[in-house]
């Protein structure tokens, strides 16, 4: 290999690196601009949000204040809604992690009659969107008097065919040697699952945690059917009231949206590294 070839390769690598940076920055602007617009707009008077939206001023916090946040909080009792959402989402995510990983593990590791049928069933059910079955589910829940209760909001969302499938494929791809060794040492199935499989499956748990946190945090339809009582309503309903009932103030809309999005952003940033790493080893590929 000659010196010239090496230096030209280095030049090419440098050009590629510059190209990568240019692309990253251009695409980065496309992704960052609307987010910046959201953050800046939340601090601006409502009328300016719209009238300044068509120029660079859209990203400039003119007349910045916290008024929008104050209005958003008082108008929709945002803190009550936020607390409800945390309770509902937290329960769904935590119990969902346990229940969905158990069955996913069993499907991947145990041989039993009906296993194939069960897998087929779960794949088929993963296609059914919740909107499609919300009405019959509402009738069921009403029958049991679970409207306006936390269980009514939580129970139908815990078991999820798609998350089960993710756990199943993750455990399937995981080496079994450690678990076998533990079993030989006399550990029962639950013990093996808890102390060997779960710690190794951290990334899968992170992935499902993020996905289920996001979807239940953003759920709009189900709480709107299931609740009319502020004591159990969730944050998305508060936002939709602010967004649709006059007088509409776009600054307040953006502020409430930002307040509602903050917890999700925090959870994501905390779990982010594991999430990306997770996918690398999980069945989603």
């Amino acid at each position: 290999m000659t010196v010239i070839a090496r230096s030209s390769r280095r030049a090419r690598a440098r050009r590629a690196r510059v190209g990568t940076w240019v692309l990253l920055i251009l695409i980065g602007i496309v992704f960052a601009a609307p987010l910046l617009f959201l953050i800046v707009g939340a601090f601006k008077p409502g009328t300016l949000v719209l009238t300044e939206a068509s120029s660079w001023r859209a990203f400039w916090p003119s007349h910045a204040s916290l008024n929008n946040f104050a209005t958003a909080i008082t108008r929709s009792q945002l803190f009550t809604l936020l607390l409800n959402t945390i309770i509902v989402t937290g329960t769904i995510v935590l119990s969902g992690l346990v229940i969905n990983s158990l069955i996913g593990y069993a499907l991947a590791r145990f041989r039993f009659r009906g296993r194939r049928f069960l897998l087929l069933l779960i794949v088929a059910l993963a296609v059914v969107p919740f909107q499609a079955i919300a009405i019959p589910t509402l009738l069921e829940m009403s029958q049991w008097g679970l409207r306006n209760t936390y269980p009514g909001l939580i129970l139908p969302m815990i078991a999820n065919a798609f998350y089960i499938y993710l756990f199943y494929s993750f455990f399937l791809a995981m080496p079994v040697e450690l678990e076998e060794a533990a079993r030989v040492d006399g550990a029962g199935p639950l013990r093996v699952f808890r102390s060997i499989a779960v710690p190794l499956a951290g990334p899968a748990f992170a992935t499902v945690a993020i996905l289920s946190f996001m979807s239940s945090w953003g759920e709009l339809l189900w709480p709107s059917l299931m609740t009319d009582d502020i004591t159990v309503r969730t944050i998305q309903l508060g936002i939709s009231v602010i967004r649709s009932s006059p007088p509409i103030n776009q600054g307040v809309v953006l502020a409430s949206v930002l307040l509602a999005a903050l917890p999700v952003m925090v959870v994501f940033i905390v779990l982010q590294r594991r999430f990306i790493e997770s996918a690398a080893r999980s069945g989603i590929k």
């Binding site: 069955i103 145990f110 059910l125 019959p136 589910t137 139908p156 078991a159």
Partner: peptide
């Protein structure tokens, strides 16, 4: 294994049945 499997499956299956399969059947 079968016993353990169904114990592991049971919570999710009960919920899936009540809140997904039955409503879809009802639909």
């Amino acid at each position: 294994a079968a016993l353990a499997a169904w114990l592991f499956n049971a919570p999710a299956l009960v919920l899936l049945l009540i809140f997904l399969a039955v409503p879809f059947g009802l639909a």
